[in-house]
């Protein structure tokens, strides 16, 4: 490695140390102002940067301010500190603009720290998930995730194997998000017993269709989470299975 490369590497290392030290100083000052322990602040930092299971990942707030805005504030502040160190440092690719290159360098360093924190949290999450599903079959995992939407569907398929056209009778409001989620899970696990019609989707999109118009008449009744389920079964249907106090399966006589 040439002298120039070694010197550049040393300066980069020194600047990384400056960034990390500045962040620590900021956190210490924050802890003093807020009168909380540094350990608590560091724990909050560690917990702030992950959310594994959503299409929109909200970040926490720190003293009521969005964490990303605080990071932006940090980048700008530290760039002002680093800019004098970069002054006069020649770069073949672009003109020396110490403040701007310092901000890029600072942001990339902070990103590395965030990536490290995130990885720690992902590791913890991976561990907790692996413990939760350890030694469980796919069946057991589905029962854990879906509850009755899976176990009752499994019960129905055992009692009534093969393809059948069924009607769902339930007290759940299928027009709500939760109700619609329950409906889709039940319909999915019941298949090839079909109860596809989705009321919530039809409410949002009137042309939403999920019923085969040529389907055969209703052959079965799937009564799920309904108080007094027997009262929902008309005279021309036989009850062939009960699952708990609110669920049953009936077939046409």
């Amino acid at each position: 490695m040439s002298h120039l490369d070694r010197s550049k590497r040393n300066q980069n290392f020194f600047e990384v140390l400056c960034v990390i030290s500045s962040i620590l100083v900021f956190l210490i000052i924050f802890a003093i102002i807020k009168r909380i322990s540094l350990k608590h602040v560091l724990t909050e930092c560690l917990n702030a940067f992950y959310s594994y299971r959503h299409n929109l990942i909200f970040v926490d707030t720190f003293a009521g301010i969005n964490v990303n805005l605080l990071i932006l504030f940090l980048i700008i502040t530290i760039s002002f500190l680093l800019a004098p160190l970069r002054k006069g440092r020649k770069n073949e690719d672009f003109k020396p603009t110490p403040g701007l290159t310092a901000s890029c360098f600072t942001a990339l360093t902070i990103l590395s720290i965030l990536a490290f924190i995130q990885t720690v949290n992902f590791t913890r999450y991976l561990y907790s998930q692996s413990q939760a599903v350890r030694n469980k079959t796919t069946d057991e995992k589905k029962a854990l995730i879906f509850g009755d939407s899976y176990t009752f569907a499994r019960f129905c398929k055992k009692r009534l194997p093969g393809r059948h056209n069924a009607l769902l009778i339930t007290d759940i409001d299928l027009h709500t998000t939760t109700g619609a989620n329950t409906h889709i899970a039940l319909a999915y696990h019941l298949f090839p017993i079909t109860i596809q019609y989705n009321p919530r989707q039809r409410l949002i999109m009137p042309d939403y269709v999920w019923d085969d118009p040529s389907a055969s008449p209703i052959e079965a009744l799937v009564v799920f989470q309904k108080k007094n389920p027997e009262a929902s079964v008309p005279g021309n249907f036989n009850i062939i299975g009960r699952f708990g106090s609110e669920n049953l399966l009936a077939v046409r006589k």
Partner: peptide, 12 residues
């Protein structure tokens, strides 16, 4: 910029 979807990549 204000969500956790992309870390601070767009800011960078």
């Amino acid at each position: 910029f204000l969500s956790g979807n992309w870390s601070i990549v767009w800011l960078i």
